[in-house]
């Protein structure tokens, strides 16, 4: 069984950056093969990891729905091939990108093919890392594998924390087994304020810890450099790795 870790949180709090650092942590500790799943409709985990996306599962689903199948090939066969092709492969991790949401009409048939493909695929990996948007719709698509750990990422803003709270409630109501939710506070400078501590306490999710504010990240983002390549001794990498040690 693959060990599955999912990241969620309000947009812009650093989910994708931390997700990238987590994948790097696994690689550096010889914990692979890893399947990285980008389930954010505005996907950019690939940019954090420094790989290119040619087409997404969403694109293949669109093809399925529209019936863009070459002459002389059965639909199933064609879709299987396309789905295989959508996997971005590297030495230690593979990446699949769920892509943009559905257009008009009914997508059920296309979605069941997609779910079947994903169930088959996840068996090939020891670790699965999912980058989700706050809605977490895609987690339930991977139902064959339960999520061992849900990492809810937030900054110290009230809106970020409220979103975290909502995600935790949503996670409880999904019909996916979630081993354990933890909260990670990102972009933290100094001590947490009393209201923030109090809010977390009331939320009832265990705080795994804080990741320090790091100007390197701003600079990398501004220049479009993959944050995956942040220097080992930078504050965010060091503090994030300390937290990851507690769960893997």
């Amino acid at each position: 069984m693959a060990y599955t870790v999912a990241f969620s949180g309000k947009g812009g709090v650093g989910k994708t950056t931390l997700c990238g650092l987590f994948i790097r942590y696994l690689m550096e500790n010889d914990k692979y093969p890893i399947l990285a799943v980008d389930a954010d409709s505005n996907y950019n985990l690939n940019e954090v990891l420094g790989v290119d996306v040619e087409f997404t599962l969403g694109d293949v689903r669109e093809d399925m729905k529209r019936g863009n199948v070459p002459v002389g090939m059965t639909k199933d066969r064609f879709i299987d091939t396309k789905l295989e092709e959508s996997i971005i492969e590297t030495d230690k991790f593979d990446l699949i990108v769920m892509g943009r949401p559905e257009g008009q009409g009914c997508y059920c048939a296309a979605n069941s093919l997609l779910t079947a493909f994903l169930s088959k695929l996840v068996g090939n990996y020891d670790y699965i890392v999912i980058d989700n948007e706050a809605g977490m719709e895609h987690i339930s698509r991977l139902t064959t594998k339960d999520v061992d750990i849900l990492l809810i990422v937030s900054d110290t803003s009230k809106r970020g924390l409220q979103a975290a709270q909502r995600i935790n409630e949503l996670a409880q109501s999904l019909n996916v087994l979630i081993g354990r939710p933890y909260l990670i506070l990102n972009n933290v400078e100094g001590e947490l304020s009393e209201p923030v501590k109090k809010y977390i306490q009331d939320m009832g999710v265990e705080l795994l810890g804080c990741v320090s504010r790091d100007d390197n990240i701003l600079e990398y983002d501004m220049l479009g450099r993959p944050t995956f390549d942040l220097p080992e001794d930078s504050a965010a990498v060091k503090s994030a790795f300390e937290l990851f040690k507690k769960i893997v």
Partner: peptide, 20 residues
């Protein structure tokens, strides 16, 4: 409204149709 759902667990068509 919330977000246009992925199919998630089962059929998301009803919620999506409503929202759209």
């Amino acid at each position: 409204m919330g977000t246009i759902a992925g199919a998630g667990s089962g059929c998301g068509c009803a919620a999506n149709a409503m929202l759209k």
